[in-house]
Design a protein around this nucleic acid. Structure first.
Length: 341
DNA sequence: CTTATCCA
DNA sequence: TGGATAAGG
């Protein structure tokens, strides 16, 4: 998922309180997908209401958002638009992986291997149009804005950060750096210990900040060259060159200056590079909306409770205590209104 | 994922 | 009391 640039990036650990009063453009598919992957029972079953409808995405969104507003961070969720045709290939590949994982999940359940079952179940998550609509409805009742992008949500979020509509982009992926986001926050709101995938090791996780200008300066490259490194390594829109990871990609770009020059040397396998100019365009000239207006409204507690508790059987106590975290946030909104007036 | 609870 | 573990829908 997303581009692998981790070896080139040295994030700065931060705390949630460092982001107080900041506006954050959150990659909505990225968080919703995470919720669907992780908010499950021990055997991998998703949380569901009495009618069997999935609720894991709503639980995650409620608790995550309440956590953010408790720290007076202003979230805006940015959704994907139409996928670029070059993304079809990776989407198809992911679909196949999910089909395989679904079978392996059932198999693990049959032999009673609960841990394996959960692991496989996590790989089966699908973000359907229904789940997306329900998440938007919850945001509406919470008074939290969202944006429907024309293309990639990460592209839209990055532009909003560049334009100053928001202060930071939040995602687990590095793609927003390719889209030119000056500031990226990973692990927004995530704290505590996490299990390393596939291993029995636990690591401490905390929010971290990545400054695009620093990444470029550290390696002595410009933004376009970072995109070229990503294309060598492989993105959601192209496969990348076998044997080239972020470190070798950087070396090649530093040595030859550009992807064009590397290609001219004929020293690398060029089978996967036929669309590279189009991929460059996806990152450097994405389809985005320039004049977004963001409005954080007062929470509608009654509507939230109707939706989560009455329609989807959330516990009233849990929802109420999550909604209490909106108190200070709502107050600061009405204060701001008075000041504006 | 976040919150609730269990137990040293 | 706080770190590990279960539950949540």
């Amino acid at each position: 998922m997303g581009v692998n640039l981790s070896n080139l990036i040295h994030p700065i650990p931060i705390q949630l309180k460092d982001l107080r009063d900041k506006k954050a453009a959150i990659d909505a598919p990225n968080v919703l997908y995470q919720f669907l992957s992780i908010i499950r029972q021990r055997d991998g079953t998703l949380l569901k209401d009495s009618q069997g409808r999935i609720t894991s995405h709503l639980a995650g969104l409620l608790y995550r958002t309440s956590h953010l507003v408790e720290h007076n961070i202003k979230p805006v969720y940015v959704y994907d638009g139409k996928p670029h045709p070059l993304k079809k290939q990776i989407l198809e590949k992911r679909r196949e992986v999910k089909e395989k994982a679904t079978a392996e999940w059932q198999e693990a359940l049959k032999i009673g291997d609960i841990e394996e079952a959960r692991k496989k179940a996590q790989q089966t998550s699908r973000l359907t149009p229904d789940l997306i609509e329900e998440s938007k409805h919850l945001l509406d009742t919470l008074g939290i804005p969202y944006v429907d992008s024309l293309s990639e949500g990460e592209a839209q979020a990055s532009q909003m950060t560049q334009d100053g509509n928001v202060d930071i982009t939040a995602s687990q992926d590095f793609d927003s750096l390719l889209f030119g986001s000056p500031f990226l926050i990973r692990n927004l709101a995530i704290t505590g210990k996490r299990k390393l995938p596939g291993k029995k090791k636990w690591v401490e996780i905390q929010p971290e900040k990545i400054i695009l200008a620093d990444v470029l300066k550290n390696h002595g490259i410009i933004h376009k060259q970072l995109v070229e490194i990503a294309i060598l390594v492989g993105t959601d829109f192209n496969e990348g060159i076998k044997g080239i990871g972020p470190v070798n990609g950087l070396k090649l770009i530093k040595k030859y200056g550009s992807l064009d020059n590397i290609i001219a040397t004929k020293k690398i396998n060029q089978d996967n590079l036929e669309n590279y100019e189009e991929v460059m365009k996806i990152f450097l000239e994405p389809k985005i909306i320039r004049d977004v207006s963001l409005r954080w409204r007062q929470i509608d507690k009654e509507a939230t409770i109707r939706f989560l508790c009455d329609e989807h059987q959330f516990s009233l106590d849990r929802v109420k205590s999550a909604l209490e975290k909106f108190e200070g946030f709502s107050h600061s909104l009405s204060q701001k209104k008075l000041l504006d007036f």
